[in-house]
């Protein structure tokens, strides 16, 4: 256990190294570039680590696919339009159940948008492929969680064999915070898909519709089984809450501070923060909404988190929200919004 004062970029790279990653393939794009350049710095000192700056995000993604098939823990990092291009390789990873790890540094969109911050890549991270969106997606709210969840992302990818995303943003990656690097946290071992002495023939295209249907049923069973083990959330001061704010990532951290301020002024407000956006902690949300059916979504998007919440809800709830696409949301703003809208 080492306590250090580090940026999100530094911590993300250290988490990949501690997770056992040996290769990174990447293409520079703001605000994710420093993950590539930090990794490259480490390759100078640690000869077990390798990298390639590829010709584009597509090549980076497919090189990740190739390297994980060969049995090496490998990752990429991208953002915005790069996350769009990455879907080609992520879709192959969806189809072939590859332990693909991608750190997404969200930036404003659509298109080239803005370069630092957003929460608009939730849909892409989960549903960017031409399939059913069976991916493991973590959303860290602090630099500490960025470390812990990156470790969990590698473990989840290699244990359950679903492509896995650390969904963060430029704000968190540039933030410097106190962090404990738990180097004792156990790693899931990497295993090649093909071995020298046993010949495997691996498809991602099927001749008969029923064949693919059967494969997808199996994926769904595995995904549901994984969900029981990994779906994670934080419920903060929700026991007696009359309003529960639902937020994720860095907005979740701001909301937590807002809850404390609102509580001081006598408002019974709580926070529900999904740590995994996929699989979504649906059961916990429903249990909560059953005794507190007033939900307020706060996110830097026009409703990508809200849609996940609505999809997860099986009990009736009243949903309002503060939706600010590609704009940061601070504590005071959340406090004012709740005070004005929940008398």
């Amino acid at each position: 256990m080492k306590r250090q004062f580090l940026t999100g970029h530094e911590v993300a790279v250290l988490a990949c190294i501690d997770a056992g990653a040996t290769h990174m393939f990447g293409y520079p794009i703001t605000p994710g570039t420093e993950i590539l350049t930090n990794w490259i710095h480490h390759t100078q000192k640690n000869k077990a680590l390798e990298y390639l700056q590829t010709e584009d995000e597509i090549a980076a993604g497919f090189a990740v696919c190739g390297a994980v098939m060969a049995g090496e823990k490998t990752f990429t990092a991208t953002a915005g339009p790069g996350t769009v291009l990455m879907q080609d390789a992520l879709s192959m990873a969806d189809g072939m159940r590859l332990p693909f790890v991608c750190i997404v540094a969200q930036r404003g969109g659509p298109s080239s948008g803005t370069v630092i911050y957003s929460q608009q890549e939730v849909n892409l991270a989960i549903h960017g492929g031409n399939g059913e969106g069976m991916r493991l997606v973590y959303s860290p709210s602090t630099v500490q969680e960025l470390y812990d969840m990156t470790r969990k992302t590698f473990n989840g990818a290699w244990k359950y064999r679903f492509p896995s995303v650390v969904l963060t943003d430029g704000f968190l990656l540039k933030t410097r915070q106190d962090v404990v690097l738990n180097t004792d946290y156990p790693n899931v071992e990497a295993e090649p898909l093909v071995h020298e002495k046993e010949y495997k023939h691996i498809r991602n295209i099927y001749t008969v519709e029923e064949e693919l249907y059967e494969v997808l049923q199996e994926h769904k069973r595995d995904f549901d089984a994984m969900a029981k083990e990994v779906a994670d959330y934080e419920a903060y001061k929700t026991e007696d809450a009359e309003v529960v704010i639902v937020a994720h990532g860095i907005v979740g951290a701001a909301t937590k501070a807002a809850v404390d301020m609102l509580r001081e002024s006598g408002k019974k407000v709580g926070l529900f923060r999904p740590k995994t956006l996929s699989p979504f902690p649906a059961e916990a949300l429903n249990n909560l909404a059953e005794h507190c059916p007033s939900l307020c979504i706060v996110e830097s998007s026009m409703g990508q988190l809200r849609d996940l919440v609505k999809q997860a809800l099986t009990v009736s709830a009243e949903i309002h929200g503060l939706y600010k696409p590609a704009v940061g949301i601070d504590v005071e703003e959340i406090v004012s919004f709740i005070q004005e809208n929940y008398q």
């Binding site: 290769h23 390798e50 497919f62 190739g66 098939m69 060969a70 490998t74």
Partner: peptide, 8 residues
């Protein structure tokens, strides 16, 4: 691109 990753 895939086989490049595999080889590396």
């Amino acid at each position: 691109a895939t086989m490049n990753g595999f080889k590396r």
